Simulated scan of single mutants.
Amino acid sequence: MCRWLAYSGNPLQLETVLFNAKHSLIDQSLHSRLGHTTTNGDGFGIGWYGHPTDIPFRYRCIQPAWSDRNLREAARAIHAPMFVAHVRAATDTPSQETNCHPFRHGRWLFAHNGLVRNYPAVRRDLMVAIAPELFPSIEGSTDSEVLFFLALTFGLELAPVTALERMVAFVEETGRRHGVDEPLNMTVCATDGEQIVAARYSSERQSRSLFHNTSFRHLHELYPDDPRIAMAGQDAFLVLSEPLADLPGWWQEIPESTVMVARGGEIEQFPFEPQVA
C-alpha cells in the first residue's frame, strides 16, 4: 500500500526523518518492513506549515521518492513545526500528481494508507454523498481523496474525530450494500496546522501498521546525547507507518480501532467507533 508520517513540535528539518534516519521514509519507499508492499514507488508528497493559521505548502510528484533530487534539496531547506509526508503504492487508480498524498483543502491536509475494497463498484455512491460545495475541489481519482472529502462533508473542520467516524460508517454501509464484506482498511492522518488526528481502523480489524513516539521527555532521559531528540523538543509528536530506527522504548504501536489527537504538546487516545451521521 503506502507509508506515511506526520510530525508536530519544534521546527524540524524535513530531511531528518525523510532521509537521515536509519529506516527513513525514503528507505521505507524501497524496503518497507511492515507494509503490504515492499516498494512504494508510485509517487510521493510532502505538506508543511509555515505558521499554524496559514494554508499549508505542498510538493507532490509522480516519480519514486528515492530518485527525486528536488525532494532531497527541499527536505534539506525546509524547517517546519508541522508536516506530513507520504510515499505511494497505487491500487486501482493511476500514478498521477493529483493522486499523490497529502490532499489539501483550506488549512487541512489528509493522508491515507489502505484501500476501499471494490472501489470501482462503490465510487459513484461515495462521491454523490460529498457536499456539492466541496465537489469541485476534487482533483484526482483515488479512494483516499474521496475519503477526505467525505470527512469534510461530515464536519472534519468542526469535530475531526466524529467526522472520521461518520465517514467510516458511511463507507462501510455503502460497501456492504454492494456486497462487499470488509469495505475499508485504513490508517489516516488529518491536520489543520494546530492538531494531528491519526486513526487506525479496518472493517476486518486487521489494519495496516501505525506507531507513535513515546514521551520525548522520557526519550531525553534515555538518550540525552541524541541530537535528533534534542532538536525536536520535549513536546514533539511523531506518528508513522513504521518506526524510523530500532531504539528500545522509542516507539509504541497504536492499537486497532484507535484514534490519537496531538495538540500543543497534549496527546489523547480514544477508541475509534464508526457512527452513522
Rank of each mutant, 00 (worst) to 15 (best):
R72V: 13
S67K: 14
D92M: 08
T53F: 04
H105M: 03
E139G: 06
P64V: 14
F57R: 14
A121V: 14
L115N: 02
A89D: 02
D68P: 02
H79I: 04
D54Q: 13
H101C: 05
H105P: 00
I55E: 11
N99D: 08
A159H: 14
E133D: 14
F103S: 00
W66E: 09
T93Q: 11
R107K: 13
S144P: 06
A75C: 15
T53Y: 09
D54T: 11
G50K: 13
L150N: 08
A74G: 02
S95F: 00
V128Y: 05
T142L: 07
S137V: 00
N118E: 11
T142E: 04
D54V: 06
V122K: 02
I46D: 04
L126P: 01
V87Y: 05
P64R: 13
L34K: 07
A151P: 10
P102C: 04
R107W: 05
D143R: 11
L115Y: 04
P136T: 13
L150T: 07
A90P: 03
F135S: 12
Y59M: 13
F135W: 14
M127I: 02
P132G: 09
W66L: 04
N70W: 15
A129P: 02
A151L: 07
A75F: 13
Q63V: 06
T93S: 14
I130M: 07
C100L: 02
S67W: 07
P120G: 09
P136K: 10
R69I: 11
Y59N: 04
D92Y: 08
T142P: 01
P94H: 05
A65F: 08
T98S: 13
S95Y: 00
G140W: 07
T39V: 15
L126N: 02
T93I: 08
R58M: 06
D125C: 10
T142Y: 05
F110T: 00
E139L: 15
W66Q: 10
A151K: 05
F57W: 13
D125R: 12
R60S: 10
R123S: 14
H101R: 06
I55D: 07
H79T: 10
A121P: 00
S32G: 15
R33H: 12
A77H: 14
L134Y: 11
A89P: 00
V116I: 15
F110V: 03
T53I: 00
L156K: 04
H86T: 04
N40K: 09
E133A: 13
H112Q: 03
A74Q: 10
